[in-house]
Nucleic acid binder design. Structure first.
Lengths: 246, 246
DNA sequence: GGCTTCTCTCGTACGGTGTGCGATTGACTC
DNA sequence: GAGTCAATCGCACACCGTACGAGAGAAGCC
C-alpha cells in the first residue's frame, strides 16, 4: 500500500497470511516436514512435490504459505537455530558458558548438516537467530566484553563451531555415501594418498607418524574442536586481562 | 578389472581418459569455464547446458571428460584451493606466516563464495588441497607443533577463515541481491529490527550503543577476522610455551 | 435465505534441469 | 582400404520450481 517500494524483502518482514477459510496446511507444519526431509536426505531430497505428497497436499498448495523454495529454506534454517541452547548469563563462569554454547552450535549443525551450506548464502536474521544473538550478548557482557569487540568474539565462537562442523560434515557425508565401515574407507583411500604424497614429504612424514589405522574419526573431530575452543578461550582471557584495561 | 569393487570412487582416484581422437574439449578447459560461470552467477548459474554453449560444445559432450556435475564441482573446488598461497616455512616468524596463510584462505573463499557451500559436502582430497596441506604442515612444524595437535591447529586456522568467509559471504550476497547501497539496506532493515528487539533487551541496548549508521560492513568483517586471528594466535603461543613442555 | 467476499487448495502447463543411450565423426594403426 | 577407438552430440526421459486460473468452502452482510 505504501508508495515507497519495500526494498528489503525477506520472509521475516512479510507477515504470514491471515487465518480463515479451510486451512489444512500451516507454515509451521510445512517447515517441520521440510526439516524432516532435509535431515533424512539432504538438500537434494527436498522438492516441493515430495514435500507436498508427504503432507497429503498438492505441491502448489504450499505456495500459499510460503513464497518460494528459497524462503522455505530460510524458515527451516531459523527453526533449526532455535534448537541451540544458550546458557543464562551468570549461571556459570564465562568460559564454561561460552563452551557449552559453542558445543551446542556445533551439535545442532551436525544434527542438520544441510544448514551449513545455507549459512553462506543469506544472513541469519530470523527471530530465533536474533533471540540467540540477544542471549549471547548477555553472556559476553557478563564475561566483560563490550562494543565491537564483543561482536567479534561472538563471530569468533560461531565461526569456530561452523568451521569444525563443516569439516566433520564433509567427512561423515563421504563416509555415509561410501557405505562401508570407517576402517575400510581409509584402507581404500590409502593407495591414492600413497601415490600423491610421494611429492609431499612433510605430509608423508606426518602420516607415517600419525597413522589413521586405529584412529576413530569421530573422536579426532571432537578433540580438534575442543582443542581449538580451549586455545580461543585462552586467547580471549588473555585479551580481557591485558589489552582491555589499556 | 580387479575382482574387488572400487568402493572409494572419487574424481581423484579415477585417472583422466587417455588422449586420442579429435579432442576439442579438455578437462582443464571445462573446469576453468565452470569456475568463471560460478564466480559470475553462483551455483545456480552453472548448468551443463550453459557450460556447453559457453564452450561451443554440446551439453552432453562434457560427460566424456567429467563423470557428472558433482565431480565437476569437486574439480572446481580443488582448482580454487590451488590459488591459496602458503608461505615457505622459515621465511618469517610463524605468527606472520600463519597469518598470511589464513588471510589467503579467506580472500580466496571470498573471491569464489560458491566454494563455501561445497566445503561441507565432501572432504577436500584433491591434489591442490593435499599440496596445501603439505606446505601447512611444514609451516606448523617449523612453529613447533607436532602430531595430532598440529592437525588440530591446522583445522583451527582453516575453520576461522571458513567461518569468517561464511558470514561475510552471506552479508555481501544479501547486499548484492538487494541492489541498493549499504546505508539504505540497513535503513530498510531498521524497522524490522526495532520491532523484534523489543523483546531482546541486551541486543537492543548493544545496538543503540553501536549503531550501524556510519559503519562500513567491509571494514567490520575484516576487523572481526583480524581480531579473532590474533586471539587464536595468542592462544596457540600460550599453549606452545606452557602445555607443550609438560 | 441469498449474495458477496475472502482464504485456501490444486490441476495444468511451461521452461528448465541432469544425464543415459546410441549414432556419428574423424584420426590413427595395420 | 579396413578396423579400432577416442571424442562429440542429438534425442529422450524423468524430474524440477512455480505462474496461473479455476474452484471449494467458510464468513460477513443484507
Amino acid at each position: 500500500m505504501s508508495a515507497k517500494p519495500d526494498f528489503f524483502h525477506s520472509v521475516w518482514t512479510r507477515p504470514p497470511r491471515a487465518r480463515g477459510g479451510q486451512p489444512s496446511l500451516s507454515r509451521e507444519q510445512i517447515v517441520r516436514a521440510a526439516i524432516e526431509l532435509l535431515d533424512a536426505e539432504g538438500t537434494a531430497g527436498l522438492s516441493m512435490r515430495r514435500l507436498g505428497t508427504r503432507l497429503d497436499a498438492g505441491a502448489t498448495s504450499l505456495y500459499w504459505h510460503v513464497a518460494n523454495k528459497e524462503e522455505l529454506l530460510e524458515l527451516a534454517v531459523d527453526e533449526v537455530l532455535g534448537e541451540i541452547y544458550v546458557p543464562e548469563a551468570g549461571d556459570a563462569p564465562w568460559r564454561v558458558s561460552v563452551s557449552t554454547f559453542a558445543n551446542g552450535v556445533r551439535a545442532t549443525l551436525l544434527r542438520h548438516p544441510w544448514v551449513i551450506a545455507l549459512l553462506g548464502t543469506k544472513p541469519t536474521l530470523g527471530p530465533n537467530a536474533l533471540r540467540m544473538g540477544d542471549r549471547v550478548i548477555a553472556l559476553l557482557t557478563d564475561a566483560g566484553f563490550t562494543g565491537w569487540a564483543m561482536s567479534h568474539v561472538s563471530a569468533l565462537i560461531h565461526g569456530h563451531a561452523i568451521g569444525s562442523a563443516t569439516t566433520q560434515a564433509a567427512g561423515t557425508s563421504a563416509l555415509r555415501q561410501s557405505g562401508i565401515p570407517v576402517s575400510e574407507y581409509f584402507k581404500n583411500l590409502e593407495p591414492y594418498l600413497d601415490r600423491i604424497t610421494a611429492d609431499h614429504p612433510h605430509y608423508d612424514q606426518w602420516r607415517q607418524a600419525n597413522p589413521m589405522d586405529d584412529a576413530e574419526p569421530m573422536k579426532i573431530w571432537e578433540d580438534s574442536f575442543a582443542f581449538g575452543l580451549e586455545r580461543i578461550l585462552d586467547g580471549l582471557e588473555h585479551w580481557l586481562v591485558t589489552a582491555k584495561q589499556a
